[in-house]
Write a protein that binds this DNA or RNA. Structure first.
Lengths: 113, 113
DNA sequence: TATTAATATCGGGAATTACCGATTTGGCAT
DNA sequence: ATGCCAAATCGGTAATTCCCGATATTAATA
C-alpha cells in the first residue's frame, strides 16, 4: 500500500502493528536496515538501478531461516502494510525498507499512541 | 509485565505489537490518553489515590462498545504488554496508561525498527 | 523449444485470536 | 449470612494467522 498522505490513519497503523506482531517479520525489517552487515558479501544486494539496499527474496529467506513460500508471504504482508517496497529486475524480486512509511509510523506512535 | 530495564527487547516489542494489532485495543489506549475528554463527567475516573487518570473497567467497556468479558480480556492483554497499569480500589479496577513503557516503545521504534 | 532458477500462489492442518454468554470471585452493604 | 455489584475467568464457536509442501508462473538460458 503506497502511502500518499501526510499521516497514517488508525487503520493503516493497525495494519503495520499486525505486520510487526511476528518476530520473524520484525527481524526481516531489521536485517534490511543495513543489508551489507546482515547478508553475505556475495548476496544479491542492489547498489544501483535506483533501488539501493534492495535484497532479493532468496537471500532474505536463507537469513531468516524460513521456507520459500513463507518468506514470500511475509514479504507480501510487509509490502501491504507499506513498510517495504518492491522492485522486480529480471527473475529477481528485490525488497527494501520504505523509510517514508516508517517515518510516518514513528510519528503516529509519538502523536496518536 | 513491569518494565524495569532501560530499553525494550525484541520480544517485549513484539508483545506490544500484538497488543496493538487490534483496532479496539488501540482505541482503548487512545481513550485513556485523556480520560476527561473521552468519558462522561460522571464516569469513574480517579484524580487522587496516587493513580491519576485511572478509569474503571465498566466505563471503558461502555465507551468501547464491547462485552464485559472482552473488555476484561483486552485490558489484560494491554496489561501484559506493559502498555497500561492497574490499581484495584474496593470493588473497582482502574486502568491507566503506563507512560514509561509507551516512551520506551517509542524509543524502540525510533532505534530498532 | 526445453530446462533451469526465482518467486508467487494454492491448499491445508495446526495454532492462535476474536468475541461472546455463563459462571465465579471478591468487596461492600444490608 | 444474604444479596449486590464490578470484574475475572471459563467454555466455546468462528475467524484468522502460522507455516509448510506442492504447484504455477515468469524470465533467462542452452
Amino acid at each position: 500500500m503506497k502511502q500518499e498522505l501526510e499521516r497514517l490513519n488508525d487503520e493503516q497503523a493497525v495494519e503495520i502493528f499486525k505486520a510487526l506482531s511476528n518476530q520473524t517479520r520484525v527481524s526481516i525489517l531489521q536485517m534490511l536496515k543495513d543489508p551489507h552487515s546482515h547478508f553475505s558479501p556475495q548476496a544479491h544486494i542492489i547498489a544501483d538501478e535506483g533501488f539501493e539496499g534492495g535484497v532479493c527474496v532468496g537471500d532474505i529467506r536463507s537469513k531468516a531461516g524460513i521456507s520459500q513460500s513463507t518468506t514470500s508471504q511475509y514479504l507480501s504482508i510487509l509490502l501491504q502494510s507499506g513498510l517495504v517496497e518492491i522492485k522486480r529486475i529480471g527473475q529477481w524480486t528485490y525488497y527494501r525498507r520504505n523509510e517514508e512509511t516508517i517515518k510516518k509510523f514513528e510519528k503516529y506512535i509519538g502523536t496518536k499512541i
